[in-house]
Nucleic acid binder design. Structure first.
Length: 914
RNA sequence: GCGAAAGUGGCGGAACUGGUAGACGCACUGGACUUAGGAUCCAGCGGAUCGCUCCGUGGGGGUUCGAGUCCCCCCUUUCGCACCA
């Protein structure tokens, strides 16, 4: 007894000396230490203390690291709980995994591969538990797949270019590179601390020249293939970020990163022709329906926004023509006016020299001064002005007025529309406001034969449904859908005044950023040759990091002659290097193709490696990238596939979008000030307990509410399983294979059934990534097993139970390993030091152990639970029915009424209808 | 406005194809071990009567021997889209 107290005294130097006057008792394998109550606290904080008892005479000394226990300091006094020493144990295995490169993999076509990827992080500082969820889910999958025998590629890297580094540099009077690198170091440490099983040899950072060389190379290929081009156009400008943004990066009229209102500004810049892939990107989604969440597919479909219709040309009375796009050529006879966007090239021209000119000009000027919110926002009302000119309806020859309207968008279709107020809500509202005639040309199916021309007067809403064409010349009487549309288009094509046309909402991707911390665009502008791309041999164009970063945040590239002065690669004359940098989304659009051969110098990636590893089998990340990153990455991959670089058109076979971590009703984030620091959790509860809680608290797709009490529970479970396994150790060494259930006493057969049923449940749960129920199943199993063997695993010693116990312990540790790898590995190493847990195969349930010889049958009367009966498993349906009917509770419940009908669900229930 | 998902104890959440609602965990209550207990162990824990029983999965209808689960209507919340012709 005495050694325990002295061990404690020695181990905790900061406990006051009198504290060590402790009473220690050992009962079974549990050490209980009592301390005098006068020492209410020796440290005001509610954190834990660790006590290492590692005496040679200790019953716990066999395991090497010994048993350690934490003593919660907030207890006034305390018996030490049976805590496990997660600090020492987690560090030990973490170090071993790193030293041995346990999770490093190589291309091996003889083995089945599994590529698991979490969206790589932006190195913004330290990780908090909100970040961790993504990586914990990924790690659980990776570790499980390894146990299933797969060759698992599980890499990590850093999305390391971007604005926040520049902002931080200004604030700290530092340099974006310095800030980024130190964040990467910090976060790498934290990933290792949490025991995420990455192949660190494949780490990439997008700001490394060895990486962005290939980002530039991809841009060069796009330039060669005509998918990268330069144009001047109105682009989204974020004043607070001091840069332009792509359409995808504008959310509700505001910058996706800083939430500042975005304004349109005419600027010249580089664009990528993502629209050329619109159809492919849309079609590709059909192949992802099994593996991607439906709502992500829907969001991408909506974003691409395909519309099928026709292009129709209208002749302007007095010269000129206007082309419109419509999805409803069947309503052409109902077009009673045309409307142009105020920015339309003809807008002012039409009114030139006639009496409407001044009014039209005023309208155009007014609209030019409005931002997107005023123009197309929720409260924007329909506004317009008559140009004074008319166009001729190409089918019925009628003259219709040409208007300018605020609701017509210049950058969709041709920036002009034909307006059919009877069958389009927007046109209807506009027509009513400006007293433009409304003409019905589609009659609702089954509607009475009315005078449809007169009917328009009393319309209160546009009718946008389908029906029969009326007032439509030779087309009248047809169904509009299908044949009607088809016939009209044929007629337009025959007369050469229109044609079939598909339009997309998707726009080309503007990638020029007027910032410093990004990949340089490999182009030199030459006064003679125009923009010329830098030859491949000269890549990468290095982003200079040795130039001072100015305090005003302006990109030093624009003002650094050493950077921008360059000879034209084509003519050798003096040129100017492109000083804008690339959108960082370009860097993250292909990184998953780099991991398979992360250090490849000769190419973006080695083809054999790509053939073997891609596509990513399971991608894990946040829903916020449903469009942004996931659309760009698909685009890049398809482009690279089209030029023979990547092996598959689609990059991600399956996608899991995890929910956010919320605390106090808000998403956990630094700006909200509700973060739970990772280091703190690791120090207080350990990496395993933190991981366990994250996976246990909610299914992955749903939001997770952080709970300080919840992680205490996770920690308790770690403690209980640790106590149980350590207590059982002496029974496990050399335990034989368990006997078949038939040869075991009922209680032990039940334990084996519990073991194998748990294997079944966890298998199913892992398959659906329902880690919360998988954990619950193992918790249940531990409850059942401790119920039989005792919390210390010592009960029933010397019986044939050792083998059953050994099977149960091995199973629990294996099933839990993907979630809490450190503790399970450590405990297993005490049972079988020669074979590490991570090399064990994933368990398979033995059907023999799942069978039962007795079944519990629920008996209902009129659907209400009335009794439960236990019957032999092989009892016939008829006999089960009889047993149920003769059950005393059922007899009473029936009260002599004869059963009208009896339903028997084999193995489950009997329902008696009376 | 349109579309999608979701509403289950005090809380997080289970219930796979309709078949014992509330697994597992948290919180709470009682007990044990104790000088002490915010540790540990045991027990209880949807509501009402607290014996049998009745009512309970947002509300209302329906289908069925049987509905948290399927169908219809409504309410609430979250997310996405919102002049894209």
């Amino acid at each position: 007894m005495a050694y325990a107290a002295s061990a404690i005294r020695g181990a905790i130097s900061d406990i006051p000396a009198e504290m060590a006057i402790a009473i220690a008792t050992i009962r079974q394998n549990l050490l209980t230490v009592r301390l005098p109550s006068v020492h209410a606290r020796w440290d005001g904080k509610a954190c834990a203390k660790t006590v290492n008892i590692d005496s040679p005479s200790s019953p716990y000394s066999g395991g090497g690291s010994g048993i350690m226990r934490t003593l919660p300091t907030h207890q006034p006094t305390g018996t030490m709980a049976e805590y496990y020493d997660f600090r020492t144990l987690e560090e030990r295995w973490r170090n071993q995994w790193e030293a041995d490169k346990t999770f490093a993999v190589s291309t091996d076509p003889t083995r089945e591969k599994y590529y698991l990827l979490e969206m790589f992080p932006y190195p913004s500082g330290k990780l908090h538990v909100g970040h961790l969820r993504n990586y914990t889910i990924g790690d659980a999958i990776a570790r499980m797949k390894r146990m299933e025998g797969k060759n698992v590629l599980h890499p990590i890297g850093w999305d390391a270019f971007g604005m926040p580094a520049e902002n931080a540099a200004i604030q700290r009077k530092s340099h974006p590179a310095t800030w980024t690198m130190s964040n990467i170091d910090e976060m790498r440490r934290q990933f290792k601390l949490m025991g995420i099983s990455y192949d660190w040899d494949r780490e990439v950072a997008t700001c490394h020249p060895g990486y962005y060389r290939w980002t530039q190379w991809i841009f060069a290929r796009m330039l060669d293939e005509g998918y990268a081009y330069r144009k001047s156009s109105p682009v989204n400008w974020c004043e607070s970020c001091g840069t332009t943004l792509a359409n995808e990066q504008v959310v509700d009229g505001a910058c996706w990163r800083c939430d500042n209102t975005v304004v349109l500004q005419e600027r010249e810049g580089w664009f990528l022709k993502i629209t050329a892939f619109a159809e492919e990107l849309l079609d590709g989604l059909d192949g992802l329906t099994d593996g991607w969440p439906e709502r992500v597919l829907t969001m991408q479909r909506n974003w691409i926004g395909k519309s099928v219709g026709a292009e129709v040309t209208f002749q302007v009375e007095g010269g000129g023509e206007i082309t419109v796009f419509t999805t409803r050529p069947d309503t052409l006879y109902g077009a009673t006016f045309m409307a142009l966007a105020p920015e339309h090239p003809l807008a002012l021209k039409l009114a030139e020299g006639i009496e409407t000119e001044r009014e039209v000009k005023a309208f155009i000027d007014e609209m030019a001064g409005q931002d997107a919110e005023q123009r197309t926002g929720e409260k924007a009302e329909k506004r317009g002005v008559f140009t004074g000119r008319f166009a001729r309806n190409p089918l019925n020859g009628e003259l219709i007025p040409i208007w300018l309207a605020n609701f017509v968008l210049i950058d969709y279709g041709s920036g002009a529309i034909m307006s059919v107020p009877a069958h389009d809500e927007r046109d209807f509202a506009f027509a009513r406001q400006y007293d433009i005639p409304i003409r019905i040309v589609i009659a609702p199916e089954g509607g009475d034969d009315k005078d449809w021309l007169a009917e328009a007067e009393s319309m209160t809403d546009a009718f946008s449904g389908d029906g029969i064409m009326v007032n439509s010349g030779p087309f009248s009487g047809q169904e509009n859908r299908g044949m009607g549309i088809e016939r009209v288009v044929e007629e337009l094509e025959r007369r050469n005044i229109g044609k079939r046309q598909v339009n997309y909402r998707l726009r080309d991707w503007g990638i020029s950023r007027q910032r410093y911390w990004g990949s340089p665009i490999p182009v030199i502008h030459c006064p003679a040759c125009g923009p010329v791309r830098v030859p491949d041999a000269d890549l990468p164009v290095i982003l200079p990091t040795d130039i001072p970063f100015p305090e005003d945040g302006k990109s030093p590239l624009h003002t650094d002659p050493a950077f921008y002065e360059a000879a034209c690669p084509a003519c050798g004359g003096p040129g100017r290097r492109e000083t804008d940098t690339m959108d960082t989304f370009m860097c993250s659009s292909w990184y998953f193709n780099r991991y398979p051969s992360a250090r490849c110098e000769a190419a973006l990636a080695d083809k054999a490696d790509l053939d073997y590893w891609t596509p990513v089998d399971q991608y894990v990340g946040g829903i916020e990238h449903a469009i942004l990153h996931l659309l760009y990455a698909r685009f890049f991959n398809r482009f690279l596939h089209s030029i023979g670089v990547t092996s598959r058109p689609e990059p991600f076979a399956r996608l899991l979008t995890q929910g956010m971590v919320v605390k106090d009703g808000a998403k956990m984030s630094k700006s909200k000030g509700n973060v739970v620091p990772l280091d703190e959790m690791a120090a207080k509860y350990g990496a395993d307990a933190t991981r366990l809680f994250i996976l246990f608290a909610a299914p992955p797709e749903r939001d997770l509410e952080w709970s300080d009490a919840g992680i205490e529970g996770a920690s308790r479970f770690m403690n209980r399983i640790s106590r149980f396994v350590i207590g059982s150790l002496n029974r496990l060494k050399g335990a034989a294979a368990p006997a078949t259930p038939a040869d075991l006493p009922k209680e032990l057969a039940d334990i084996r059934r519990l073991t194998h049923r748990t294997i079944e449940r966890v298998r199913g749960d892992f398959g659906r990534f329902q880690f919360n129920t998988a954990v619950a199943a193992v918790m249940e199993m531990l409850n059942g097993v401790t119920g039989h063997f005792g919390a210390d695993g010592g009960q029933g010693e010397g019986t044939g139970g050792d083998a059953v116990l050994a099977e149960a312990v091995g199973t629990m540790l294996t099933l839990l390993y993907p979630i809490t790898p450190h503790l399970t590995t450590d405990l297993w190493s005490r049972i079988a030091p020669e074979a590490p847990l991570w090399d064990r195969p994933w368990p398979v349930a033995d059907p023999l152990c799942l069978t039962r010889d007795e079944l519990l049958i629920v008996v209902q009367v009129n659907g209400k639970l009335r009794s439960r009966i236990t019957v032999p498993a092989d009892m016939s349906e008829e006999a089960v029915k009889e047993t149920a009917l003769n059950d005393p509770k059922i007899v009473e419940s029936l009260g002599g009424k004869p059963p009208r009908k009896v339903i028997v669900v084999p193995g489950k229930l009997v329902n008696i209808v009376a």
